[in-house]
């Protein structure tokens, strides 16, 4: 009996070590990048006396970067808006009419999310060029809309299915029209799901690189610009930019976690 308990403790200790190692492996590279945006590296050694913010300063004088950031924001907002409208319509439709047709529809919506991004990107590239649509922010926004659609749809549908049918019936029983029921009962209940979906979609769009690469043409979004800079090598300027984007990503994650609340992230998890 004691041997068994000892074995259990040993197993948990081993798992704790594995987990600790995984967390170190996930975070060490990122911290190193952040560190190297402030300090210089010489022969693989960090020069601790070389603290400087000069690389951050250089970023602000880089004009292409500002344009790339603006483009990323435009694409992000446009695709989030389109995806939310489409996802809401889809969620209502699927919720109202479960069956084979909607199962197939769901599968199709999920394809751009599940398939390797290279396939989504390429198929849209070929499609747009066949129809003579020139590449640019418009085509990228369409690509992002499709990419984030599945996640937005799923988030809204889950909430919709969680709503009791009684709620709608009670509203109609009290004399509300369909529109009034939608406006006063459904919408307030869906608000959180829609905002969550929007934040997640924006985070995905803001970081999307592979689909964008095929659809962007000759302008830039932030990740595309970064990709070009990274191919050139490991430079302090890239480190500074990467650090800024990381801080932004972390803040966005915290906001999402805050918004979704402990109910979803802590305690019992549901996605």
């Amino acid at each position: 009996m004691n041997a068994l308990r000892l074995g259990q403790h040993a197993a948990m200790a081993a798992l704790a070590i594995v987990t600790a190692m995984v967390f170190v492996a996930l975070y060490a590279p990122i911290f190193l990048v952040a560190l190297l945006s402030f300090f210089r590296l010489r022969r693989g050694e960090i020069q601790w006396d070389s603290f400087s913010l000069q690389w951050y300063g250089k970023l602000f004088s880089n004009e292409g970067l500002g344009q790339a950031l603006a483009n990323s924001l435009i694409v992000g907002f446009a695709s989030v808006l389109m995806a939310l409208v489409l996802a809401t319509l889809l969620a209502f439709y699927v919720n109202a009419r479960p069956g084979l047709r909607t199962t197939i529809l769901q599968f199709v919506i999920f394809l751009p999310f599940l398939l390797p991004p290279i396939i989504t990107g390429l198929s849209l590239l070929v499609f747009f060029s066949e129809w003579g649509v020139s590449r640019g922010l418009f085509t990228v926004s369409i690509g992002h809309t499709l990419f984030v659609l599945a996640l937005a749809y799923r988030t809204i549908l889950t909430r919709l299915q969680g709503l009791s049918r009684n709620l709608m019936e009670a509203s109609q029983d009290l004399g509300a029209t369909r529109w009034q029921t939608f406006r006063y009962i459904l919408l307030p209940n869906l608000k959180l799901a829609v905002v969550t979906a929007g934040l997640l979609a924006f985070a995905l769009s803001f970081d999307e690189t592979m689909i964008t690469l095929f659809l962007i043409g000759d302008t830039n979004t932030l990740p595309i610009r970064l990709f070009a800079m990274m191919r050139a090598g490991f430079t302090p300027e890239v480190n500074a930019l990467v650090t800024l984007i990381l801080v932004f990503s972390i803040l966005l994650t915290l906001v999402i976690a805050r918004y979704v609340g402990r109910g979803a992230i802590g305690g019992r998890f549901r996605l």
């Binding site: 975070y27 190193l32 990048v33 690189t209 990740p223 972390i250 994650t253 976690a257 992230i265």
Partner: peptide
Amino acid sequence: LGLIVPLLMSYIIKIYA
């Protein structure tokens, strides 16, 4: 939460790091 942060982190930034 510490797992979700790298999940939502830019893919190319992770590769770069």
